[in-house]
Amino acid sequence: MPEPALPAKLARFRHAKPDAKFDLSRIDPGDKPCSGGKKAGDREAVDALALELDGLQNKFWADRRYKMLVVLQGVDTSGKDGTLRHVFNRMSPLGVRTAAWKAPSENERAHDFLWRIHAAVPAAGEVVVFNRSHYEDVLVPLVNGQIDPEAAQRRYAQINDFERMLCESGTVVVKFMLHISRGEQRKRLQERLDDPEKYWKFDPADLKARDQWDDYQHAYDHAIRATGTPWAPWTIVPADSKTHRNLMIATVLRSVLKGLDLRFPPLPPELKGVKVP
């Protein structure tokens, strides 16, 4: 499986070489490489791309030569749910599925950490979007001191092997790290506390994670450095702007799907010339 395609203007946001020098702090969460300059125009562009992605996904489903796993990873409030609403909202439920990952259950902890993940990967022709992912099973325990750096490195090596196996079996793996600033996270968390319609979204555990901001940034930096590969590269998405986040992700997905040379299957010979009565 070749490296997923990426528009040239976004090349600096891609990391696809393990152990290469990488510094997350050098990427500005407020950057807007895909923006046309006006929010309204960007919003219209996202809507147009969502329609185009629907057509490409329809062909992807009919083609059946590939599978696609889209990973949305990021700190709390980085926009994983919003991406699902705005980028994938025009796609038919046929062939598109979402898996949201939380802390593993007791039964899941009794198996290796990838056991539950493998059961949710896409089948032929299917697009599966992970809202959080297997990376949570390294980032969170590492920051909380439940595993040490050596154990984390072993898990990242296992993830690389797992993702390579998926790619060698026909799965296109597209990984997005939604990169927001500490200030933007504060604003979004406060909005959840101030808006009665968003109370349900606030989790007191988010405040503990916020206290660990620097630790999580360091952990993400290491994770991306260790697991950006040619077969499953990371794209870092500046996400302080919700509209730009959606625009950039939709742009990348369109590029990836177009790079697959998808085609509808031909009409079976026995159906040629058939007239429906």
Score class of each variant (00 low, 15 high):
Ala209Ser: 12
Arg65Val: 00
Asp214Gly: 10
Met248Trp: 01
Leu260Ile: 07
Lys59Glu: 05
Met91Pro: 12
Arg188Ser: 10
Ala110Cys: 12
Pro269Asn: 02
Asp137Asn: 14
Ala16Thr: 12
Asp214Phe: 10
Tyr220Cys: 10
Ala250His: 05
Leu193Trp: 00
Tyr220Ile: 04
Lys38Val: 13
Phe130Gly: 08
Phe264Asp: 06
Tyr220Val: 06
Leu253Arg: 01
Gln217Leu: 15
Glu191Ile: 03
Leu69Phe: 02
Arg210His: 06
Asp240Trp: 03
Phe88Tyr: 07
Phe60Asn: 02
Tyr216Ser: 10
Ser241Asp: 04
His222Gln: 13
Ala232Gly: 11
Met91Ser: 09
Arg154Val: 11
Pro141Leu: 09
Trp234Arg: 07
Leu139Pro: 07
Ile147Leu: 13
Tyr199Val: 06
Pro122Gly: 12
Gln158Ala: 15
Asp195Phe: 08
Gly36Gln: 05
Ala20Gly: 14
Leu94Val: 15
Asn89Met: 09
Lys175Arg: 08
Ala62Ser: 10
Asp23Ile: 09
Arg116Lys: 12
Leu260Arg: 04
Ile224Ser: 03
Asp161Ala: 15
Ser255Lys: 05
Gly95Val: 13
Thr235Asp: 02
Phe88Ser: 05
Arg132Thr: 02
Ala16Trp: 06
Asp42Phe: 00
Arg116Thr: 09
Ala5Thr: 06
Thr227Leu: 08
Pro104His: 02
Lys39Thr: 11
Asn246Trp: 14
Leu6Arg: 07
Asp47Lys: 15
Thr171Ser: 08
Lys272Thr: 13
Asp211Trp: 14
Val96Ser: 04
Lys242Arg: 08
Ala100Cys: 01
Gly228Ile: 00
Glu184Ser: 13
Lys32Ile: 07
Leu84His: 00
Ser92Asp: 12
Arg90Val: 09
Asn58Ser: 11
Ala119Gln: 11
Leu6Phe: 00
Phe113Leu: 11
Lys59Arg: 12
Val143Cys: 12
Ala209His: 07
Ile224Gly: 00
Phe88Thr: 11
Ala250Cys: 05
Thr77Asp: 01
Lys38His: 11
Phe202Gln: 01
Ser241Arg: 06
Leu56Tyr: 01
Leu56Met: 03
Glu163Ile: 03
Gln153Cys: 08
Val71Leu: 05
His222Arg: 15
Pro141Ala: 09
Met177Lys: 11
Pro204Gly: 05
Pro268Ala: 00
Ser35Thr: 13
Phe13Glu: 02
Trp231Thr: 14
Trp213Pro: 07
Leu262Tyr: 06
Ala205Thr: 12
Val75Pro: 15
Ser133Phe: 08
Val172Arg: 15
Trp115Phe: 14
Glu106Met: 07
Leu207Thr: 12
Phe162Asn: 10
Arg43Cys: 01
Val173Cys: 09
Phe88Trp: 09
Met248Ser: 10
Ala205His: 08
Arg26Tyr: 06
Leu271Gly: 03
Ala48His: 02
Arg85Pro: 13
Ala8Pro: 15
Leu207Pro: 08
Ala226Ile: 03
Arg225Thr: 02
Asn246Cys: 13
Ser92Tyr: 01
Val172Trp: 03
Arg182Pro: 11
Ser255Thr: 02
Ala152Asp: 12
Arg97Asp: 00
Thr77Ser: 07
Arg97Pro: 00
Asn107Val: 12
Leu207Gln: 01
Lys275Ala: 08
His15Phe: 14
Pro104Val: 06
Leu247Asn: 02
Asp214Gln: 07
Ala100Tyr: 04
Glu44Lys: 14
Asp112Tyr: 15
Glu136Thr: 09
Val46Asn: 00
Leu114Pro: 15
Ala100Leu: 00
